[in-house]
Simulated scan of single mutants.
Amino acid sequence: MTVHATGSCHCRGVRYEIGGELNPILACHCSICAKTSGNYAAMTSCAAADLKLLNDETLRWYPSSDAGNRGFCMRCGSNLFWQSPGSEEIYVTAGTLDRPTGLKIKEHIFVGSKSDYYDIADGLPQKDEW
């Protein structure tokens, strides 16, 4: 397997590598991402089969909504993954990827529920929902 990316949580209790291509980043401004990340969440995605966990001793999953489950580190609190039940695709928070990533934000989603303390002024496409 060719490794295209590696990453980890802050304390390195969760480490991973991705063997497949990564998709451009989506910036999600939904209220759940804001609550779990502290702001909007920038996430890339890949085939779930391409994500290999090298260390998952502190990885825990939380069913944050009917739409998906969030993987986080129980020790340092890093928000790592989001996956819809039964999906063959998994989202990876871009900030947990080792640099350089070579990725760019493609669009903003759920801007209809973004907070009022910031503006989106980068000229990229914006969707009120997904």
Score class of each variant (00 low, 15 high):
8 S>L: 13
127 K>T: 07
88 E>L: 03
40 Y>F: 14
52 K>M: 09
22 L>H: 02
42 A>Q: 11
68 G>P: 00
23 N>P: 07
55 N>E: 14
31 S>Q: 08
80 L>H: 00
34 A>N: 10
76 C>I: 02
111 V>E: 01
13 G>E: 07
21 E>W: 03
21 E>V: 10
21 E>R: 01
39 N>V: 12
43 M>A: 14
9 C>W: 08
77 G>L: 05
116 D>I: 11
40 Y>G: 03
12 R>K: 15
17 E>D: 07
101 T>S: 04
15 R>K: 15
29 H>R: 01
59 L>P: 05
48 A>V: 14
88 E>S: 11
30 C>Q: 00
112 G>H: 04
4 H>Y: 06
59 L>Y: 05
124 L>G: 04
28 C>T: 12
20 G>H: 09
93 T>S: 03
114 K>A: 06
79 N>F: 09
95 G>D: 04
93 T>A: 08
67 A>G: 12
128 D>E: 11
45 S>Y: 06
53 L>Q: 13
22 L>Y: 04
45 S>C: 06
29 H>V: 01
44 T>S: 10
69 N>W: 10
107 E>Q: 10
6 T>G: 09
82 W>M: 04
123 G>W: 06
27 A>D: 06
64 S>H: 04
71 G>K: 02
47 A>I: 13
22 L>S: 06
96 T>Q: 04
16 Y>K: 13
76 C>T: 00
110 F>D: 05
24 P>C: 11
63 P>F: 07
117 Y>K: 03
61 W>P: 00
66 D>Q: 12
91 Y>G: 08
46 C>K: 05
130 W>G: 05
118 Y>G: 03
92 V>Y: 00
119 D>P: 07
100 P>T: 10
69 N>P: 07
14 V>I: 06
45 S>W: 03
2 T>Q: 13
53 L>W: 14
111 V>G: 00
47 A>C: 12
39 N>P: 09
14 V>Q: 02
44 T>F: 10
57 E>Y: 08
129 E>W: 02
114 K>Y: 08
40 Y>L: 11
53 L>E: 11
60 R>C: 13
72 F>N: 01
10 H>C: 08
49 A>Q: 15
5 A>F: 05
128 D>K: 04
11 C>V: 04
61 W>Y: 01
19 G>M: 06
84 S>H: 14
54 L>N: 12
107 E>Y: 10
117 Y>I: 13
63 P>L: 11
32 I>Q: 09
125 P>Y: 01
50 D>W: 04
8 S>Q: 13
60 R>H: 07
94 A>K: 03
110 F>V: 00
57 E>V: 15
52 K>I: 12
119 D>E: 15
64 S>K: 00
126 Q>W: 04
55 N>G: 12
101 T>L: 02
99 R>K: 14
22 L>G: 03
120 I>M: 02
15 R>F: 10
70 R>Q: 12
98 D>R: 09
19 G>L: 07
65 S>R: 13
13 G>V: 03
100 P>A: 05
46 C>L: 07
14 V>G: 01
46 C>S: 14
22 L>P: 01
25 I>C: 00
104 K>Y: 02
104 K>R: 10
22 L>Q: 09
39 N>D: 15
42 A>L: 13
86 G>M: 07
114 K>L: 02
20 G>V: 02
44 T>P: 01
85 P>C: 11
115 S>C: 08
12 R>D: 12
118 Y>F: 10
